[in-house]
Design a protein around this nucleic acid. Structure first.
Lengths: 101, 101
DNA sequence: TGGTCATTCAGCAGTCGCGCTAAGTGATGC
DNA sequence: GCATCACTTAGCGCGACTGCTGAATGACCA
């Protein structure tokens, strides 16, 4: 949770997540969209991965990143719980749904 | 929004918000709960205020801080919009409600 | 007016984060 | 085998953040 918020504190990282909302992508595909060297993108992705906000999957010499929307939403809803009744409801339902598996 | 996420990236600041969820407080009352010098707390509060996440109200020689739950929730819901259908619904409804005034 | 209390401002040291370039790793293809 | 491609790791400089102490501000009370 600490890590999630630290990860979300950076504009480029939030933009990367928005791009990934459109579907899984390789590092190179993401880097094309940003005016930033690939190692910098790679580092941002590793921060997001360390926070559990993206998944990575090796595919030959490519690495495909995809968004971990559940983790992202769960973190924010559970943080919002003390402040917002709607978040309490959603957070509770998501937890119940998770247990069903 | 940028400011909101930067403000939320710090553990002490999230804890302060949690305390404020219990009701408005002065700087001194907040500082009592933290093992941190008052100027440090004051600075955190000013970061939160700059991000619009708390309100401040002068009351004699005290300054009373209270949480801006609406702004906090709106920021997070609107960020979550691309990733989570529930957030889309809530965000839309909150915006509609805001226009009604 | 002078003292005290609540809070903020100023300035400092240490740490962390961001972007870069250069070099390393590991899979692919000739 | 070796060149190439996709990506990560290492290391650097710089600016931002975090906590501190000490001083300033501003309201209250005698």
């Amino acid at each position: 949770m600490e890590k999630a918020f630290k990860a979300l504190a950076s504009n480029p990282r939030r933009r990367i997540l928005n791009h990934l909302a459109g579907g899984p992508m390789t590092v190179g595909e993401i880097a094309e969209q940003f005016d930033m060297a690939m190692p910098s993108i790679s580092k941002h992705l590793s921060v997001l991965h360390d926070a559990g906000l993206v998944h990575q999957q090796k595919r030959g010499q490519h690495i495909i990143y995809s968004i971990a929307a559940d983790k992202l939403a769960n973190s924010l809803y559970s943080f919002l719980t003390p402040f917002c009744p709607e978040a309490r409801v959603i957070s509770a339902r998501r937890k119940a749904d998770a247990k069903e598996d």
